[in-house]
Design a protein around this nucleic acid. Structure first.
Length: 591
RNA sequence: GGCCCGGUAGUUCAAUGGAUAGAAUAGGAGUUUCCUAAACUCUAGAUACAAGUUCGAUUCUUGUCCGGGCUACCA
């Protein structure tokens, strides 16, 4: 990574010229703005003050020093205001290209020895997946791939929230309204079918509350006493007591949901090495309560409920065990954290969960730290913002969600329509066509959800968000297909040595971008942010497209130029395929 | 009420305290005898408001205004 090389050279130069001692943070190296001459820029302002020299003098002294001590690295420099702009020698770029253009591991890091668990998706089993889940899944899958590329050993996990009042709601509604409807009988996807009954439950519940209120009962009382709600609560108790009929129904409906999820996961290319079920883990946290009481981390109130006081940490008192002895959400997560650590002794455990749970995860980590768990510091909540519709939040209960399966179908059918209109792949078989439509449609969707900083909320406008031009997946896929079309005609000659051709501006721009790839891969991991890669891949594609329009590869000015450009094509294709791969997006050979 | 996020072109998104705030889209004007025009080139358009910190602020601090979330013996 050349910026580090330059930083080091600059540090050494300033230290030996002025006999001062610096840290790397003192040296600020930026990419030179395109309107100025040069590749990288050293910002001089801080030193101007410290050394009481004019920018001109300082810049010249440092510039001269760097040129004379690193003749292979720098070819020239200029000073504008407080900025020292340095031009990197053409040899360096050509050398870089030759070393890397055919390296399949370009951009990947050596094994780090770190183990990381990434938990994502984490669905409830009472309804199908929606657009918000897709953001979660794509994020989780992508961050796992990014960490792998950085040399970590990664285990993808999923916690299925398969028990609780929400499932009971779907079950009750199914008992009342279904007449025994099943996925195989109705032809409906299992998760969708169960989700329909969840919505039906809420419709019925609202109706009953309204009726009770009409008969003069207060809203609060009505909500408590609506017959369907009481039935659902009773069912939860029966479930916990292991009542056979309830367990049987629960298993049956959950299995429908799993079959449905499996179809969706498979289609979007999502996978888990290990799946945890809440019904197996929800009791694990209870032993923490005893430990916590012994260590005086927790305390007991008169009614028997157990709490932790986090007021000194700027938070509240938090319940960890109910008066009736049952555990709450946080208790379950304490248990699961331990279980996961026992299973993999991870260095880092990442939870991909929406930002409405920021407080919860802050508390979880804090409690584990107070309990002196060795793995506590490795917990990381990868918090992401909601996907909202122009009208506001999606609510499954209300049924105003963008369904994941429908969304995917929509994207794929649009990609099919575009592809047919353009008519560039008429020789494809039916099977090849379908694969291509999937690649493009899913590519557009994944890119759309991953190109934004995870922390930020995003608005999905069905009318405007579906696009295949500009800052999109298909734009980048198209660039890849174009490059491959050249490489099908001729590949770069592995043994050819480029001697001295000089570099045209657009060739150099492209190389400059390529050189950043390793840094970007690293940055995406440290920031836990796939959008860094998405933006980068887009910039690469854009840079290539400019180059492509301006300069011919096959009809290059000379044999050497042709080889240089073929090498550039190979490296660019690799970088695009590899960065998109980490986003879970395939790139086609033709489109 | 308390705590935590966010407010940047019409719209959707960028910008480790650094140069004239970048893209994309929508708008306007162009490019195809030549490797895929899902492309390329040009053009116009934005930091909510007010103070402060300093050589320099979209970025840091404070206040105001506007959104969102959390503050459950739900998960």
């Amino acid at each position: 990574m050349i910026t580090e090389q330059i930083r080091q050279a600059a540090k050494q130069a300033i230290e030996s010229l002025y006999n001062i001692s610096l840290t790397y943070k003192d040296i600020q190296i930026n990419d030179t703005k395109p309107e100025f001459e040069g590749d990288y820029t050293l910002v001089l302002f801080a030193f101007i003050r410290q050394l009481k020299k004019s920018p001109e003098q300082l810049g010249n002294e440092i510039g001269e020093y760097l040129i004379s001590h690193h003749p292979g690295l720098f070819s020239s420099y200029n000073i504008i205001k407080g900025f020292l702009n340095m031009t990197v020698h053409t040899h360096y770029w050509v050398d870089f290209l030759q070393k890397n253009f055919s390296n399949p591991a370009f951009g990947k890091k050596q094994p780090s020895g770190e183990k990381v668990m990434v938990e994502y998706s984490s669905p409830n089993t009472n309804k199908p997946l929606h657009l918000g889940h897709l953001r979660n899944i794509f994020l989780g899958w992508s961050i796992a791939e990014i960490l792998k590329a950085n040399g970590h050993e990664v285990v993808k996990t999923c916690i299925v929230n398969d028990r609780g009042i929400h499932i009971c709601k779907s079950m009750i509604a199914w008992q009342i309204f279904s007449n025994g409807e099943t996925p195989s009988g109705s032809g409906k996807k299992g998760d969708h079918l169960v989700g329909e009954y969840y919505v039906k439950f809420n419709d019925e519940y609202k109706k009953q509350v309204k009726e009770l209120m009409a008969s003069g009962i207060s809203k609060e009382e009505a909500e408590k006493n609506a017959p369907v709600m009481k039935a659902a609560q009773q069912m939860l108790l029966d479930w916990e007591a292991g009542k056979p009929g309830v367990i049987e129904l629960w298993k049956k409906m959950n299995s429908w949901v799993y079959e449905g999820f499996e179809v969706t996961y498979k289609r979007i290319g999502s996978d888990f090495a290990k799946t945890y079920y809440e019904s197996d883990t929800y009791l694990l946290g209870k032993k923490f309560v005893e430990d916590g009481l012994k260590q005086d981390v927790f305390f007991k109130k008169d009614d028997g409920s157990v709490w932790i006081d986090l007021t000194e940490d700027g938070l509240d008192e938090k319940l960890v065990l109910r008066a009736d002895g049952t555990s709450v959400y946080i208790t379950q997560d304490l248990g699961l954290a331990q279980q996961k650590y026992d299973d993999l002794h991870y260095n880092q455990s990442i939870y991909v969960v929406g930002d409405e749970q920021n407080y919860h995860f802050k508390v979880l980590k804090l409690i584990l730290q107070k309990l002196k768990k060795p793995y506590a510091s490795g917990l990381y909540h990868l918090s992401y913002g909601m996907v909202e519709l122009p009208a506001g939040r999606m609510k499954s209960r209300e049924g105003n969600v963008v369904d994941a399966d429908e969304m995917i179908d929509e994207m794929v059918s649009i990609s099919a329509k575009h592809t047919e209109e353009l008519g560039k792949v008429k020789d494809f078989s039916e099977e090849e066509l379908n694969e291509l439509y999937d690649t493009i449609g899913l590519g557009a969707l994944k890119f759309f959800l991953l190109r934004v900083d995870p922390k930020k909320r995003m608005i999905f406008n069905p009318e405007e968000s579906i696009d295949f031009h500009g800052f999109t997946g298909p734009f980048i896929q198209y660039t890849h297909a174009r490059i491959k079309s050249i490489l099908r005609k001729e590949k770069a000659d592995q043994s050819y040595r480029i001697k001295e051709s000089g570099l045209l501006k657009l060739e150099k721009d492209l190389l400059f971008k390529m050189e950043q790839y390793s840094t970007i891969v690293e940055q995406a991991a440290t920031e836990h942010n796939p959008s860094v890669l998405a933006i980068y891949a887009f910039e690469v594609a854009k840079t290539f497209n400019s180059f492509y329009t301006e300069h011919s590869v096959m009809n290059a000015e000379s044999g050497e130029k042709k080889q240089l450009r073929l090498q550039l094509c190979e490296l660019t294709a690799h970088v695009i395929a590899s960065s998109m791969g980490m986003l879970g997006i395939k790139v086609p050979e033709r489109m």
